[in-house]
Simulated assay, not measured.
Amino acid sequence: MKKKIQSTLTAGLLRTLALLPYGLVARLGETLGSLLYSLPSKRKRILHTNLRLCFPEKQPEEREALARSTFRHVIRSYFERGIQWYGSASQIRRLVQLESAIELQDSYEQPTIFMGFHFAAIEATCMYYSIMHPVASIYTPMSDTVTETISRTQRSRFGTEMISRHGSAREILRVLKSGKPIMLAADMDFGLRDSVFVPFFGIQACTLTAVSRLAQLSGARVVPFVAEVVPGYKGYKLHIFEALDNFPSGDVHADALCMNQFLEARIRLTPDQYYWVHRRFKRRPEGEPSVY
């Protein structure tokens, strides 16, 4: 009963936010982000640790400003889920600009893996793509079953085929070979299985090898995409790049490093829009102490 009530309240809040103007919702999220940043929290500690590790060249006051802005973007993105999950297709189309270096129709003529990263606008731009083109999405089940049910249902409402990360590789390969591209995010620490340690901002990071392995098995090209929050409350921009060159290379370490280097270069353009609140360096190479 408690979970049912929680689910009803969560869905009700998000539905209400979907009725409000985008600019107002964004500003409300930023305001709450500023208020929450002033309080001690686990996420705030993780954020500061990540920034200290990845940007040692910055002065403490620069990292502080970056941390504050990041927190505002993170909380704002949660508020904007209302529009993304419950807004109309026309609402979402109006909010997203598309900039693609490839002809998207080709993605239905050759196996394609769209590789994304956890920037603040990733949810909005993936929803936009699912409105415009058929796609499947690999998702990570959440520990909160209430939010899990809502997110999976709403993310698939425009026809996206949702595939659990814990599912079989055979299912993913079936989708790729059927002519439907797959979207996934590959920049989190999901454990030592099917991962290798390679540098990310100069720090050894546990990095997934699943992308290169799936590409190797399916013959798929790997196309990176990045989501950007456009300044001035003007919505979002979805950047789709050329397929990674010589990927997969046959060397999972080289492929993982290629992924991290691409992501690092994009983060440096909008560092406050990346989800630094995640424990990216959760697992350490053998013998190294925890950084958190």
Rank of each mutant, 00 (worst) to 15 (best):
Y128E: 04
R193K: 14
G82H: 05
R165C: 03
L98N: 02
D189W: 06
M162R: 04
P134A: 10
M162P: 12
F117R: 00
Q84K: 00
S130E: 03
G82Q: 09
A185M: 13
T112C: 11
H133A: 08
F114T: 00
T149Y: 05
A169K: 02
A169R: 02
I92Q: 09
R174A: 11
Y108A: 03
D189Y: 11
E109Q: 15
M132G: 00
I122P: 00
L192D: 10
V146W: 08
Q110L: 07
V135A: 10
S168A: 14
R94S: 15
L104T: 09
Y139W: 04
E171P: 01
I122Y: 08
I83V: 13
Q110E: 14
S88D: 11
R193S: 14
A185L: 15
R94G: 15
E103D: 15
Y86Q: 02
M127L: 10
R193N: 10
M188P: 04
E161L: 14
A186T: 05
L95G: 05
D106Y: 02
E103T: 15
E148C: 02
L176D: 01
E109D: 14
R174T: 05
E123D: 15
I138C: 01
H166Y: 14
R157S: 12
A169Y: 03
F190R: 04
E103C: 15
S88V: 06
E171W: 01
P181M: 06
S137F: 03
R155V: 06
M162L: 15
R174V: 00
I102V: 15
R155K: 10
S107F: 05
D106R: 13
A101L: 15
P111I: 00
D189G: 04
L192G: 08
A169Q: 06
S90V: 08
L98M: 08
E103P: 07
T147W: 06
Y128N: 05
D194K: 15
T125V: 15
P111R: 01
E103F: 11
Q110I: 03
Q97E: 12
I102K: 11
S100V: 11
E123Q: 12
P111E: 00
G82A: 11
A186Y: 05
E103I: 11
K180G: 04
E123I: 04
M127V: 11
M142H: 06
I150H: 08
E148N: 12
F119G: 01
A124M: 15
T147Q: 12
R165P: 01
I163E: 07
I172L: 12
R193A: 14
I113Q: 02
E161K: 14
Y108I: 02
T147L: 13
Y86G: 01
F114L: 12
C126V: 13
